[in-house]
Write a protein that binds this DNA or RNA. Structure first.
Length: 487
RNA sequence: GCCCCCAUCGUCUAGCGGUUAGGACGCCGCCCUUUCAAGGCGGAAAUAGGAGUUCGAUUCUCCUUGGGGGCACCA
């Protein structure tokens, strides 16, 4: 906790690609924990990877976070500006801070210059692996004399800075999810804290920033657990109190490996574009590695925030299940009020080339099958027959329309329904049922051809309401046109 | 190779020494119904293996096996 007792969490992505499902799940848990505890949620961009960081990635991260509704209390506003008392929130704009503390560590003797080049280190590492030794840096530059340093620099070598790990003892990570995890110091290596370029490495920058930004709880992926002892030693050397740590289990793909690009859609924005609702994705992701004692599945409104607790976090990794996500998204769509659903569907309808000109209003059409959509992308396909010329499916043609007597039924129906007054759900049903009984036909013998003729399909919305929405003119003309195609 | 983590239905999970091992997705059956959904009801489906500790282990300990993560001048 900070001095005023506030809980502060952060999400600190590196902009080296789009924000993926695993990353955003971490963001979500930090956001939930902060909101639950009336704390603050900070967004910080860790762009110290000079070769892989891109502005497009930053934009994608900000867009993803905003779309998902994970609003941050401090952090970047856009590519050029930040807001919040600890600005800037882009690490590359914070180099002076890192410089200050790296200098301090060198002066204390806790860090030292290393003149080994990347190539030399690669050779050492390969050699070590060949000899089946652990691939650690051997600390050869630790005890360089002033003269040796001078000579290496005269060769044109630029030093990196390494942190001196203690050679004995253990570092204990006290994790909110995993409990106490112990690491042997002698197995750790003198890791680089500042690169030759003067840019800090992740392990260094993250410690400086989490401290300066008064982060109280570091909630992050499991893959960082083994970095934690290094970071803890840094806190110790700097004389700082470390934050609490909570390492979340990872998200796996269907094949059991860490979720990655090769598992299909992994970018948050892809889910948006595939018609998933932000609250549904949030709900699903929350359940990946977290649960309540009663295994509640659906969390409406603020329930997710209210019920969230780190103690409900799972230690074992979870497999991402797109099928369950689809179910949940359907649940959320069903609960979405119609006007909002129509608004959400808009870009998907445009993309599918559906315009409500001539046909019924979109909200009536969309409402008709409201309980059927699992994703927004399914909407156009389920209502397009209102707005586009009828295309008969094979099943409609073979199983329904080609049955004997259907042509006659359709023709008579066209005449009969043209007289229907009023042209509404109930009246139409009554009329068609009467039509059947007069002719001694079973309802199915009429209902099915009627649907097939008007929509081209064998399945669809409830029949008579659909006819009402379609309107007399379109219904009659489609009946005639379907009949004319039959012999 | 070394270090660390993990282990309940196919999947997400509840359980925190004594339960008919519960829920959810998916699957199967029935009902509703003009169809497809939605909804209702019901069903099949799990404690990785082996030693302990205990009157009693899904639960505690150890080992085995399996899975995952890490061992960069990437984060």
């Amino acid at each position: 906790m900070t001095e005023n007792g506030r809980i502060r969490t952060r999400f600190a992505p590196s902009p080296t690609g789009f924000l993926h499902i695993g990353g955003v799940r971490t963001a979500l848990f930090n956001w939930l924990y902060a909101r639950k505890n009336k704390g603050q949620f900070v967004l910080r961009i860790e762009d110290t990877d000079e070769v892989r960081s891109t502005e497009d990635s930053v934009t994608a991260i900000l867009d993803s976070m905003r779309w998902l509704g994970l609003e941050w209390d401090e952090g970047p506003r856009d590519l050029a500006s930040d807001f919040g008392p600890y600005a800037p929130y882009y690490q590359m704009k914070r180099l002076e801070h890192y410089r200050k503390y790296s200098r301090q560590l060198v002066e204390n003797g806790a860090a030292y210059s290393c003149y080994c080049t990347k190539e030399e280190l690669d050779v050492m590492r390969r050699q070590a692996q060949l000899e089946k030794r652990p691939p650690r840096y051997d600390g050869r530059c630790r005890a360089l004399s002033e003269a040796q340093r001078k000579r290496l620099e005269a060769e044109g070598r630029k030093p990196s800075l390494r942190f001196k790990m203690p050679e004995e003892g253990n570092t204990l990570v006290d994790d909110l999810i995993r409990g106490q995890v112990s690491f042997e110091n002698k197995l750790q290596q003198d890791f680089v804290i500042v690169k030759t370029s003067g840019v800090p490495t992740y392990n260094f920058a993250v410690v400086i920033d989490d401290h300066l930004m008064e982060i109280t709880h570091v909630i992050r992926g499991d893959e960082h657990l083994s970095n934690t002892p290094s970071q803890l030693q840094l806190y110790l050397a700097l004389g700082w109190k470390p934050p609490r740590f909570a390492h979340l289990s990872m998200i796996l793909g269907p094949d059991g490996a860490k979720l990655s690009k090769r598992h299909g859609a992994t970018s948050v924005l892809e889910y948006r574009d595939q018609g998933y609702l932000a609250p549904a994705l949030r709900n699903y992701l929350a359940l990946l590695g977290w649960s309540t004692p009663d295994s509640q599945q659906l969390f409406g409104g603020h329930e997710l925030v209210d019920r969230f607790d780190l103690s409900g976090c799972q230690k074992s990794p979870a497999t991402f299940d797109p099928v369950k996500l689809n179910w949940m998204n359907g649940e959320y769509i069903r609960k979405t009020p119609l006007p909002e659903l129509v608004r959400l569907a808009d870009p998907f309808l445009r993309r599918a080339g559906i315009e409500p000109n001539g046909g019924p209003s979109l909200d009536k059409a969309i409402a008709l099958e409201h309980e059927k959509y699992k994703t927004l992308t399914e909407i156009p396909g389920l209502i397009e027959f209102f707005y586009k010329p009828v295309e008969f499916t094979t099943k409609a043609k073979e199983k329904v329309l080609s049955q004997p007597g259907v042509k006659q039924v359709l023709l008579e129906l066209a005449v009969d329904l043209d007289q229907a007054e009023p042209f509404t759900d109930k009246a139409l049903e009554q009329r068609v049922r009467q039509f059947c009984s007069i002719r001694g036909l079973k309802t199915g013998q009429v209902f099915h051809p009627l649907r097939a003729a008007c929509t081209g399909r064998t399945e669809g919305p409830t029949l008579f309401l659909m006819l009402e929405i379609m309107g007399r003119e379109m219904v009659v003309s489609r009946l005639k046109s379907a009949a004319s195609g039959l012999s």
